[in-house]
Simulated scan of single mutants.
Amino acid sequence: MPELPEVETTRRGIAPYLIKHRITDLEVRNPNMRWPIEADVFEMKNQTITEVGRRAKYLLLHAQSGTLILHLGMSGSTRISGRDEPYKKHDHFILQLDSGLDLRLHDPRRFGAVLWHQHCDGPLFEHPRLKDLGPEPLGDTFTPSYLINSCHGKSCTIKQHIMNNRTVVGVGNIYACEALFRSGIRPSRAAGNISAIRLSNLCQDIRSVLSEAIEQGGTTLRDFLNQDGKPGYFKQKLKVYGRESQACDQCSSAIRKTTIGQRSTFFCPQCQR
């Protein structure tokens, strides 16, 4: 699944091709996505894209009267294509631009989403898919004190807590494992039983691991290539994720794999307590 760094990489990749360009036409080749694509998306025709934003793992294409909300789901990606380029089998949604280029949403598993929010329907961030989201991990409100307070009295594991979008958005499985390794915190520890100083360090490590991944183009997954067709390179720096039985770079102990919240979880039994 594309995670926050991959989505941010996508945002940065497509923005120069979209901003200040008018949508001349739209095509819905398959409306059966995670939520059916509704006819109201055609309100975007003849409007100009003013900004390309992101909230959690949602891409936000802002226009004069509303915002197109895109989610890449499990296997989705967007690409900028020439108008004459043949469609791929799983190109389900296409925006045609006045530049002669297309923005195409490609999603083999169809777990992605295409939603239209009219400005007259209320504030964008009150949209049902956005209103209950926690703070952005790289934003000003995700602070050590916020994370410490959010963990108070929590019996769930710290990994489940930081992967909960109501706590903080966009800390997916890969980056949760890597941030917890950097902080020396075992993923199975109860969130409410971790000291304030260790949680403070974890907050900083979440921010740093995501920032580094964004700068390096995200982590290459089976179903994701970044916008210029090149894979991300953060995968080369992963310390624990996907490295079961390999030697820890810090202590040479064998990396272990377990399951937490139905997700594969990797950690060093020596470095993480």
Rank of each mutant, 00 (worst) to 15 (best):
M1Q: 07
M1V: 08
M1R: 03
E3N: 11
P5Q: 05
P5E: 04
E8C: 15
T9Q: 00
G13I: 03
I14R: 07
P16L: 05
L18D: 05
K20N: 15
R22H: 01
D25S: 05
P31K: 12
N32I: 05
P36C: 00
E38A: 09
D40M: 04
V41R: 01
F42N: 06
E43G: 11
M44C: 01
M44V: 01
N46F: 04
Q47P: 03
T50F: 14
G53E: 07
R54C: 09
L70C: 12
L70S: 11
G73D: 11
G76D: 13
G76P: 10
R79G: 04
K89F: 03
L95T: 05
Q96I: 02
G100K: 01
F111W: 10
A113R: 08
V114K: 01
H119L: 12
D121F: 06
P123E: 01
P128C: 01
P128M: 07
R129E: 14
D132Y: 13
D132L: 13
G134N: 06
P135A: 08
E136A: 08
L138E: 11
G139Q: 10
G139Y: 10
T141M: 11
P144M: 15
S145R: 15
N149E: 15
N149K: 15
I158G: 01
I158S: 00
K159E: 09
I162R: 00
M163S: 00
M163P: 04
R166W: 08
V171N: 02
N173P: 11
N173H: 11
N173T: 13
I174A: 09
A176N: 10
R182Y: 13
R182A: 14
G184M: 12
N193V: 07
S195I: 02
R207S: 12
V209P: 02
E212V: 14
I214A: 10
I214L: 14
G217R: 00
T219F: 00
Q227R: 14
G229M: 09
V240C: 07
V240G: 02
Y241W: 12
E244L: 12
C248V: 11
D249C: 12
A254G: 12
R256K: 15
T258W: 11
T259R: 06
I260R: 04
I260K: 07
S264R: 01
C268M: 06
C271T: 06
